[in-house]
């Protein structure tokens, strides 16, 4: 195959920590193989710079949180056949979406000595709120298995299998002992989307929902269970209003527990 015939891929960064891009950079030998299959036209963290070049697949990390983000995402969409969001920021607004629940102007004034230098939007929002997204990969951060699986499927011309089961399913497949049942830990696994391989419970800690809501999540039942385990409503609210606070299922559950606290 001639190198010019290779599909073109871009990896863009918006408002984020760069962690999801590491899912590519940490691939090791597999990254060499990826480089044989596709041309990375733009991947600032790895070298290539051509943010406005037309590509077959654009991986987008980060949320829309500044006026500049707003303009750039429109250009990225125009230049990409397929747009894939990677991570909690791009897919749900990220931890920085907590500002959506507060007065962002007041926060900035409280934190920065010269707030007039901060150019940010009042809200941090997911990519899909602004442009059409073809595929969303959840996780904070996403992992190599996910990005390779998505890339391989798209190169075949099909969508990757969707992963929307609860973390508990994978936890049990791994024969991990449940931390909620044996130790009363407030585990978010029963409402969280699988994809990480039930990592946290395998190290004896509770899931904090970095992969966002699973399909059909019963947040109300889990919130009641957390209260039964001794969490006050405010603490329950914090379990939901964390990395994926911008995902509607978690935001609504968190606000509801928060109201019980205030009321």
């Amino acid at each position: 195959m001639e190198s010019t015939a290779k599909p073109k891929v871009a990896v863009h960064k918006f408002s984020s920590c760069d962690g999801c891009q590491l899912a590519f950079l940490n691939l090791g030998a597999a990254l060499m193989q990826v480089a044989e299959l596709v041309d990375f036209t733009h991947f600032a963290e790895a070298g290539p710079l051509a943010p406005d070049a037309a590509v077959d697949i654009a991986f987008v990390e980060g949320s829309i949180a500044t006026p500049d983000d707003l303009q750039r995402i429109a250009r990225v969409r125009e230049q990409s056949r397929f747009l894939v969001t990677i991570g909690a920021c791009a897919t749900a607004g990220g931890v920085q979406a907590l500002r959506n629940l507060a007065n962002a102007g007041e926060w900035i004034a409280g934190v920065y000595a010269r707030p007039e230098h901060i150019h940010s939007l009042d809200r941090s929002t997911p990519i899909a709120e602004h442009v059409k997204v073809d595929l969303e990969l959840w996780g904070c951060p996403v992992n190599g298995r996910q990005v390779l699986g998505a890339l391989r499927a798209l190169l075949f011309g099909v969508m990757p299998a969707q992963e929307n089961d609860k973390v508990c399913m994978e936890c049990k497949r791994r024969q991990t002992v449940c931390v909620m049942v044996t130790r009363g830990r407030a585990c978010m696994g029963p409402v969280t989307r699988t994809g990480c391989g039930a990592l946290c419970p395998s190290f004896g800690r509770d899931c904090y929902a970095c992969y966002g809501p699973a399909e059909n999540p019963n947040t109300a039942a889990l919130a009641r269970r957390f209260e039964g385990l001794g969490l006050v409503p405010e603490a329950v609210a914090r379990r939901f209003l964390f990395i994926n606070n911008g995902a509607p299922a978690f935001r609504d559950a968190g606000l509801k527990s928060g109201e019980r606290h205030d009321g």
Binding site: A30, V34, L37, F156, C168, C178, G189, P190, P217, A221
Partner: peptide
């Protein structure tokens, strides 16, 4: 249904449950 998390822990620990899914895991080179 209002109490159930639809999490699948019950079926996973049930010694008689046998449901499974099958999927393709392609190698990167295709």
């Amino acid at each position: 249904a209002e109490r159930c998390l639809s999490c699948g822990n019950c079926t996973s620990v049930c010694p008689t449950c046998f449901c499974h899914s099958e999927a393709e895991v392609p190698k990167l080179d295709g």
